[in-house]
Amino acid sequence: MMQMDESEINEDQLALVLDECLSAILSENASLDDCLARYPYHAEQLKLLLVAASKINRHKTLEPTQAFRNQARHELMKYISSHEYKSVPVYRFALILASLVIGFLTTGTALAQGALPGDRLYEWKLASERAWRWTATDHVSVDIKLAERRSREVLAVSGDPERSLRAHQEYQYAEMVLISEIVPENKARITSVIQTQRESLEKSGITLTPVDEITPLQPEPVETPAGPSELRMPSQIPSSIPFVTVVATPDLMPTAMSAVPALTEPAVLPPVVSTPNK
């Protein structure tokens, strides 16, 4: 054990002495004999290593041929001219950032489409629908699809009183928007959609007050698309707006009724903010 330690120490010392000798030879132009004289204790082992070092050191001035130098230079120039170097890749950075943002928005929007009232992504879903509506040319078709979505959401969260409240409010709102868009040309279509949805909800135990009267709006003189954050709201509210009323059945939403008194009886709709046409 002791011997091993000693030999390890000797190896370390020899490595150190060799390194010092090499430094002296390479940078101070010392000779091999100078080094051996400087370290007589290690001379025997050093000599072999330094001779080996001198064999490779002899080639430190090795040069490539002029023919290669010229040819490689020519190829490099050709390569440089065909691969223009972009010094400040700001545009790339911007492109990457934009791609990331678009990717994030796209993924988020796709994920949000399955969100229900009360979910974190539900507001995102509504925002994406507003953007969809804003970019669509046929607002009525979009609003019909949105109303269908809202009615499905009402059914999906019917077991959760807190979420039901929000779902009903959103359905009510979607239906109201649809009604506000009725003109003689689309009255049948919109009425049929609303009727179908109501029947579907009623079959699931959600009773709505009948659509006893739907007053068509007068066509607005100037059609101006609304911004993405606002729905085009009617400038004239129908005199009679059907309300979504939830009938409190024991097996459905037992606590909802106490939590949501406004929905247990015909309630006054939240004030509608009309957006003046620009």
Binding site: L18, L49, V51, A52, K55
Partner: peptide, 17 residues
Amino acid sequence: RALQMRALRALAKELKL
């Protein structure tokens, strides 16, 4: 340093010094 020493030893051996 240790690697350098082993490398030169191996080189000496290969060169049959």
